[in-house]
Design a protein around this nucleic acid. Structure first.
Length: 253
DNA sequence: GTTCTAGAAC
DNA sequence: GTTCTAGAAC
């Protein structure tokens, strides 16, 4: 039987270091970061709030419950998670450069309707290349433009809006979000429709490899410029900016 | 959240 | 015949 409350048991630990190193990535006084057990991308972590006053475990059950516990408290807790998640993001980016020579986007966000108990903020790399990504629900739940994946910055912006907009956004009605998971498969990057999951997965892998290739050639050019500026810039060596600079800025004057 | 598998889709 | 999806799991 699957354990849908495992995250809660982690978050309740008074000594997170007891957790196996295959589970725990790092912790602070206020949060735990764990490796997602079934990563849906090359890098995928979950940042969980630890259960500390004034919050009860029930209030930290999910986003909806947290919003109900009070606007200001919800705001500070999500800001805290965001701070810790951005640290994780930095580490992921460093690891990307170390392993692959360049970095790519990392998304921070919540699922509008989570499957597992206890609030968790996803830190996931934008490749979505992973063996554990197996079906439409998996993919659509991380599609960055579909609406099911709630970007951290969007959630934070709700706290800056008026009460009626805040009330509307924080309802997180299942009936509104769950149908999104059944939408047709579309590449999040180029918007092309995808026939099925295997096709999509092949496409995502190609897209990532393409991006890596581009980054690599950019890096190589940069390195070449540093070594031999004249040759790298071509025969003519302009002494200042290219003459078409104004057109590029979009300025009309 | 996953695994398993019947039957639809190709 | 094989691949793929989607719903049940006692």
């Amino acid at each position: 039987m699957p354990n849908l409350t495992i995250l809660r048991t982690y978050a309740l630990k008074s000594s997170p270091t007891e957790l196996p190193s295959s589970v725990l990535f790092q912790h602070t006084e206020r949060s735990l970061t764990i490796f997602d057990a079934y990563p849906k991308a090359m890098f995928h972590f979950l940042v969980l709030p630890r259960v500390t006053p004034p919050f009860t475990v029930a209030e930290l059950s999910n986003l909806k419950a947290l919003f109900k516990s009070g606007r200001e408290r919800a705001k500070s807790l999500i800001e805290m998670l965001g701070q810790d998640a951005r640290q994780i993001q930095k580490m992921v980016e460093e690891e990307m450069v170390k392993r692959y020579g360049s970095k790519w986007d990392v998304w921070l966000g919540f699922h509008a309707v989570p499957s597992m108990e206890h609030l968790h903020l996803h830190v996931i790399s934008s490749d979505l290349v992973s063996q554990a990504l197996k079906n439409k629900k998996h993919y659509n739940s991380f599609h960055p433009k579909l609406g099911f994946f709630l970007h951290l910055n969007d959630v934070l912006s709700w706290f800056e809006s008026d009460q009626s907009y805040y009330d509307m956004k924080t309802q997180l009605k299942k009936e509104e979000y769950e149908p999104l998971l059944k939408q047709d498969l579309v590449c999040w990057e180029c918007d092309r429709p995808m026939k099925n999951i295997p096709t999509l997965k092949g496409h995502l892998k190609e897209k990532w490899e393409e991006r890596m290739k581009k980054e690599k050639s950019r890096f190589d050019k940069k390195r070449k410029r540093a070594i031999d500026p004249e040759e790298a810039a071509g025969i003519e060596q302009p002494s200042s900016e290219p003459s078409n600079k104004r057109a590029d800025t979009g300025d009309t004057l």
